[in-house]
């Protein structure tokens, strides 16, 4: 099956990348500690139905079939290359692959496990798409910690979201005159949409993040990003570095 894969594989990027850990770890074993791997990886026959249905495969040079085949090979050098690659960051986690697989695999779950391990080991900063995790931590992650929600209107800047259009720009400029039409508690205490979450509830969320490893994970993303940013010539994981990960594609420069 590996011979078959190498012959027809269209995405060879990760096979030639020099791995920073030189395969000193049993990545497959580490992956299998994640319940999503145990649920998502059964026995793939490489039929490619997942790739046929995959929205990411239509847009990127991406092939979930190859991801599953690589992980299933238990070849830690290939898995390490995958953990350092752009490839694992292409999936949109729509999970369209899940109901279609005739063998009960879920490539989307395997991707989740790979991304988790890539971040735990600091390998995500090896790829441009991986480095975007800092931007996600600083936007969605910090929204959760500050507001208790993944997004709030005041943080959806029309300048960073031009696709939101002219109506969103109008809403964003007049939020305190518009949202109270629909909620009694806009940015205030009480039940209703977009309420200010009470301090007790927010403190509970913070403690959950501390005790469950969520805060440590955020800190890891920051630490690895800081190191990589300096290596790339920035003064650290500054706002400028974060914005560059958020906005730039090197292939378009």
């Amino acid at each position: 099956m590996r011979h078959f894969h190498n012959k027809i594989g269209k995405n060879t990027e990760y096979f030639f990348k020099k791995p920073p850990y030189l395969c000193t770890m049993d990545y497959f074993k580490m992956l299998m500690e994640d319940v999503r791997m145990r649920e998502g990886l059964k026995a793939c026959m490489n039929c490619g139905v997942c790739t046929a249905i995959c929205p990411a495969a239509e847009f990127y040079d991406y092939d979930p079939r190859q991801i599953v085949e690589t992980v299933q090979s238990r070849d830690n050098s290939r898995i390490e290359a995958l953990l350092c690659s752009e490839t694992i960051w292409y999936c949109g986690q729509c999970m369209s692959c899940r109901p279609r697989c005739p063998r009960g695999n879920t490539p989307g779950y395997i991707i989740q496990s790979l991304r988790y391990l890539s971040q735990k080991l600091g390998l995500f900063v090896q790829s441009e798409k991986g480095r975007q995790q800092l931007a996600l931590k600083r936007t969605i992650g910090e929204n959760i910690m500050h507001y208790g929600y993944c997004l709030v209107p005041q943080e959806i800047s029309p300048d960073l979201h031009p696709e939101q259009g002219t109506v969103w720009r109008w809403i964003h400029s007049h939020d305190r005159d518009i949202y109270p039409l629909f909620t009694p508690s806009y940015r205030k205490a009480g039940a209703g949409a977009l309420r200010k979450l009470d301090e007790g509830s927010l403190a509970e969320i913070h403690r959950i993040f501390e005790l469950s490893g969520g805060k440590e994970f955020f800190d890891l993303i920051e630490e690895y990003s800081e190191r990589k940013a300096r290596e790339m010539g920035y003064e650290g994981a500054t706002h400028e570095y974060m914005l560059d990960t958020f906005t730039k594609n090197s292939s378009e420069q």
Binding site: D34, L136, G148, Y149, S201
Partner: peptide, 19 residues
Amino acid sequence: PLHSSCTGIGYHSDIVPLD
């Protein structure tokens, strides 16, 4: 009024761990 986000967008953006 006490419930929060489920954090699902963070989870599927791979910044919020499963636990």
